[in-house]
Amino acid sequence: MAPDMLVSLLWKAFLQTMYMVAAAGFIGSLIGLPIGIFLATSGKGELFPAPTVNKIVGATVNAARSTPFIILVVAIIPFTRLIAGTSIGTAAAIVPLTIATIPFVARLIETSIREVDKGLIEAARAMGATPFQIVTKVLLAEARPGIILGLTLTLVSLVGYSAMVGAVGGGGLGDLGIRYGYQRFMPEVMLAVVVVLIVVVQAIQSAGDMLARHFDKRTRKN
């Protein structure tokens, strides 16, 4: 393949991947964050005790997470059509990606919040904080480095998931690699796709690590 054609194909696929990852990551985190906070604070004897609802939400999250992504993509096609107006294309692919992101983010947020020292919750209660203030001023503030790393992991996973939405015409880097590299016997396209993906994942991870380090004041550093 001519180099300029390869570059143009790669660029288009790169933009599609970025679009899908960014949109699904953003919407998914927006919905996953409150669910994660709820999971971390609604157990028995916790800030907003609702143990039954907690168990139901937890079970739903587990169910969603154990469904293989490619099956999820196909299974929710009617829902995708309802939301996106079509079940094919990059925009439509964002729907299953978002659905897969929500439980993933929720669990990661929950874990980060649960790692916050219980003594801090007690101290805040002793100051007369409301449960809502404890969440915003203590839990989210203290869990911030963990949440950032969790969201980084989410984005990296999304880059991987986005390779599968070629099945519904989502396009993107993964799809390019399969169609050209594998089905049309063009190993150089496959190689180029893999290199770009490595760079993308590396960039996301480094940015996330840097941000998390910036907010992490738990250890002394000079």
């Binding site: 020292d117 003594g119 801090l120 007690e122 101290a123 203590v138 503030a141 203290e142 911030r144 907010f215 004041k217 738990r218």
Partner: peptide, 10 residues
Amino acid sequence: FQHFNLLSSR
């Protein structure tokens, strides 16, 4: 408190 319970992020 015994373990101070200060917010590490503040």
